[in-house]
Design a protein around this nucleic acid. Structure first.
Lengths: 138, 138
DNA sequence: CTTGACCTACGAAGATCTTCGTATACAATC
DNA sequence: GATTGTATACGAAGATCTTCGTAGGTCAAG
């Protein structure tokens, strides 16, 4: 194999949807920014029992999938999420929309809002978003 | 087999979160109502290649998990979703909220709405929901 | 009663995810 | 240069999901 077949170059595809464990790690990276394995492990271990080498292995897999990047300039490699939270969240919502809501965003919103107590500030923010959308139609 | 051991009666726990394949089947059952394996299979096979016994097996597993019920009165067993769409959708949104949005419903709503073109009707429906929530605070 | 059509039950293979033990590398210190 | 602490790499086991082949039961028609 030689030059890049555009259809099979992994760096060109957006990374796959993260699994549950991967998402947990991404959450830490989004919060903290670029981190070493040790740092990620410490954060996760605060919540639940998990071994160091489990986190390491997961990060290596995530690297091979393109979910994270890593900087090897230091002895302790530094990992960072390769996509911002917004983009991955969008991807996840998109998937859920298709898989469980027949594509109806309003149904999903309905469930989300009737699901948990939502603060007045959040409600206001959503109204603002609706105004935006309706005021500036595609 | 005899009487039910109450500690292992699957009907007492709420059913677990369905997997991707299970969700696909639930979609058919929610749409069509109670259906035979054949009917479910026909619907799925219209979209993608899948064997009859795959669908059967999946339904049997779903039965053991409590995701569906079945009526054996006829030669062809009739399966039905054991929870309404709303409840399962709520469960899925709940999970996604925790796993990817740090529990912030408004963030999820934001992603959902900015994600896809949403029809004016849907937007209006969401506004109505907001009015409901704000008009009748907990 | 035999055959054919249709149905359920069962087992098992292959894929993916999660988890971790252990081997190996490296750098600093004695 | 041997030792010790810290890192990464690797392999493999166990769990769950997906998929389907095939055996075996039942009913109606011949």
């Amino acid at each position: 194999m030689n030059q890049t077949d555009p259809t099979s170059d992994p760096t060109l595809d957006s990374p796959p949807r993260p699994t549950a464990g991967e998402l947990e790690i991404l959450g830490v990276l989004w919060d903290r920014g670029p981190s070493t394995v040790r740092e990620v492990h410490e954060h996760l271990a605060a919540d639940r029992a998990v071994g160091y080498s489990t986190v390491l292995k997961l990060l290596q897999i995530m690297l091979s999938k393109g979910l994270v990047t890593r900087n090897e300039r230091f002895r302790s490699h530094v990992y960072a999420a390769s996509s911002p939270a917004e983009q991955t969240q969008r991807q996840l919502v998109d998937h859920l929309l298709d898989a469980a809501f027949g594509g109806s965003a309003s149904q999903l919103v309905l469930r989300a809002l009737s699901d948990r107590p939502t603060s007045p500030e959040e409600l206001a923010e959503i109204r603002r978003l609706l105004d935006d959308i309706e005021g500036d139609p595609p």
